[in-house]
Amino acid sequence: MKNIIEIQNLTVEYKIKEGLVHALTGVELHIQKGEAIAIVGESGCGKSTLASALINLVALNAVKSGTVKINDMEILSAGKKVLENIRGKEIGIIFQEAGAALNPVFTVKEQIEETITAHFGKLEKPELEKRGLALLEETGLNDRERIYKAYPHQLSGGQQQRVMIAIALSCNPEILIADEPTTALDVTVQAQIMALLKKLKKDRNLTLILITHDLHLAVDMAQRIVVMYAGEIVEEGKISQEKDAMHPYSRALFELIPDINAEARDFKIIPGEVPDMTTKENKCRFFGRCATAKPKCGTMHPEYEKVKEGHAVRCFYPVKD
């Protein structure tokens, strides 16, 4: 199968007063057309930075190196015109908070139609409106006539996220990136949005990149899981249950998530904190929080190595049981 996305040695650092934030370090990732993958990791480990790098839209204070290829087109060195063509048309992206990602002073109609116009030129008004309403229908919205003419603040969180999805899909991209699409929503709406994404993935044969900190959700949606920790990929492979995971961090993530049905929603937090992202010490980034760490882990930085076909881990002592 052909790789639709190829990321090689991608490094992104944010310049700040205190130095450099190593948001992504040496990221390698290949994604095939039509695949559904999930990128999982705790807050601040670089997931959104990775999503932004895929469309070369990282913050202005970022220094980036490496290559990102979409359909064999290099993105990181691409010019404005090329990027404008790729963004929205080849890659649609749904942001963490739909409420903040929708422009508050334009209607849903304007925000959908301006996207279509940006890529397909000016269409006849009825044609534009027909496409817009069809998108709202596809994203499962009722009361479409009203929502189409509404401003973002007049919609519920779930409706806003569906509109965001409609915008992301308005120019029929092959790739859809969903960056924590449900974090801002309550549990029932979360489930609906996830079901919708699943359906859209199938109907449109999308290449789906789901970004989440919920490993259970990831396992449910994706065939392949990429686990990130402190700006690095630490594990990648077909993981569908806890014992498929080989990195101690991935294991810990599995234990982290509480049963949705459980009465008390007390998260079992992994002890310790994500390391300071401005320093790069010569040791495993997870050292200090890892329950199975050995002395070597504190003196050397583990390489990212293939352990079996389609499965790679960044750990000296991958868990195998």
């Binding site: 963004r87 929205g88 048309k89 992206i93 992301a168």
Partner: peptide, 11 residues
Amino acid sequence: YYIKAAYAKGM
């Protein structure tokens, strides 16, 4: 954020 989102749409 919505300005970033606008760029992400390819405007």
